[in-house]
Write a protein that binds this DNA or RNA. Sequence first.
DNA 1: GAGCGCGCTTGATCCACATCAAGAACGGTC
DNA 2: GACCGTTCTTGATGTGGATCAAGCGCGCTC
Lengths: 187, 187
Amino acid sequence: MDLVRRTIERYVPLRTDEWERIAPRWAEHAFSKGAAVCAVGQVEERFYIVKSGVQRLSFPHDGQDVCVGFAYDGSWCGEYASFISRRPARFDVVALTDSVLVGIGHDDLQRLYAEVPVMERFGRLIMEELLLGRATREIEQMSLSAEERYDRLMARSPHLLQLVPQKDIASYLRMTPETFSRLRRRH
Amino acid sequence: MDLVRRTIERYVPLRTDEWERIAPRWAEHAFSKGAAVCAVGQVEERFYIVKSGVQRLSFPHDGQDVCVGFAYDGSWCGEYASFISRRPARFDVVALTDSVLVGIGHDDLQRLYAEVPVMERFGRLIMEELLLGRATREIEQMSLSAEERYDRLMARSPHLLQLVPQKDIASYLRMTPETFSRLRRRH
DNA sequence: GAGCGCGCTTGATCCACATCAAGAACGGTC
DNA sequence: GACCGTTCTTGATGTGGATCAAGCGCGCTC
């Protein structure tokens, strides 16, 4: 629970009375390796903070899973788009390792938005942050070659290689496992 | 000014006293064809609603402009990422036609967020909407072939072809003007 | 520890789209 | 209305990365 408070306070200060209204809305959810946090077609009911484990965000495209992101310790997790829009998820969220997520239900969050003004700001700041991340990824996806995308990821997040299967990283970098393997050999 | 009120009220209801605090913060800005609304390297000072005209969002990549979006009547405009983060813009925003934008300055908006609670919600809802749009675009960019992306755009926004140069649409669809031209011939 | 499935590697081949090149059809401007 | 820069078209050629096809290694389960 302390994780939730620390996380929110990275964005907005919390008075004790505010925190007391917020805390009871969050709950831990455990997922074992391979389990679906959210599956295409269902409506995402929760917004999560990762307590432990690694999760993959992907969407299915003719038999393949196209990976668009990962979540791990301290980052946000869930199918945000479905959570926000209340429409069926277009992405899958899968636990790549045993995971513990701390989540808040959609209705609970809406109630907090209405009851605790500072939460509305927190919500805005998160959405801004997620949007910024997407802008960065968009530039990289659009302007870099397969090899440059590989180099960039290895420079920024080399630990990913230890955490998740290479085929998922390959997909995330918009290339086949074969190409990824060849790039790796050529350093 | 009415445009601003109607736009905000698509997201949140406004009482008269709230609107009276909001209205004076917005101002019209005219840009003639080809003018830069925001250029790479400068910090975006305003967030705009398009009153008239068409604008292009792009980033430069070895001598080329890679187009990532368009704005027109009623849509949002500006280099959001820079506006939010207060960091130098990585995208250019250019008026493709003579344009009138209604904008609010960064500091003014922050003040409204603090003074008018309903604006904080408005801000969150806009960010959610922009994030949803990016998610949709990401799926389409990642999973569709050049031809499918062409078909999808022509089905959804055929009017774009009248509004903006084909080379910009081609770039937006992640293909060369030559490929775009050939797809057009084959219907 | 035998058998099996899946992920990773490595090589050979293929193809969608880019690049290069050269006209043709526009505007704008003097 | 002649000039010029830009955009659009059309054809010929090139290529990065995908696809196809084996083999290999490692962790399961029985």
